[in-house]
């Protein structure tokens, strides 16, 4: 089948820009998706502050402050995974496949570690302190909803990174074309940034 070629045809990049889903297109679309996801979190954060400020002090009577030390360690694990993710992508760009794979696996393991920590924290709250999602007023509602949403994002991220790893093993990406890895990295950093916000509002202030 012939390709319609006209005078003054440009480079192949130009050609693709008109019709195919190129990297630029996807990158922009993905960023916009992250922005709207960010609005979702922001709305719940707004709700959290709204409820927090309308009550009688925070945490509400009968509820202990959250354990900052444990959460801080868990945060370090998550931020560490952000760093390993960064190096994974950098190594991919430089063609070091082995180091890329190593960093990817490290990211996945750290992500799972964070989830494990969160599960531990949830169990502690629910079993020892009897703080639950639906039964502890606005505290339980906002804490479990927001951190649960975040945890869901981390879980999706871990699965996504795993798929990316398999894909790259099977040669889906090349040194020049690796949009999936860029998206995975962006998503992972996004999840990190959200955690900075959640950590500050639940544990610090």
């Amino acid at each position: 089948m012939a390709v319609a070629t006209l005078p003054h045809s440009g480079a192949h990049e130009e050609v693709d820009q008109l019709y195919k889903e190129t990297r630029d297109l996807r990158l922009q679309g993905f960023l916009l998706f992250l922005i709207s996801d960010c609005v979702l979190f922001s709305s719940f954060i707004f709700a959290y502050f709204y409820m927090r400020n309308s009550g009688q002090g925070w945490p509400p009577p009968g509820i202990h402050r959250l354990d900052v030390a444990f959460a801080a360690v868990n945060s370090v694990i998550l931020f560490g995974s952000g760093a390993t993710m960064h190096y994974a992508l950098e190594n991919w760009k430089h063609g070091n496949f082995n180091r890329y794979a190593m960093f990817m696996i490290a990211t996945i393991v750290l992500g799972l570690g964070f989830l494990g920590g969160q599960a531990y924290e949830y169990t502690n709250l629910i079993v020892k302190e009897h703080v639950t999602w639906a039964g502890s007023g606005i505290f339980g509602a906002s804490f479990f909803t927001l951190t649960g949403m975040h945890g869901f994002h981390v879980s999706v991220g871990v699965i996504y990174l795993f798929i990316l790893l398999l894909q790259s093993v099977h040669g889906v990406y090349t040194k020049e074309k690796y949009f999936g890895l860029t998206a995975g990295t962006l998503y992972w950093h996004f999840v990190d940034v959200i955690w900075v916000a959640l950590f500050s509002i639940f544990y610090l202030v």
């Binding site: 390709v3 440009g10 008109l18």
Partner: peptide
Amino acid sequence: GGGIADHI
């Protein structure tokens, strides 16, 4: 004048 190359 000619537009750019593209495929359909």
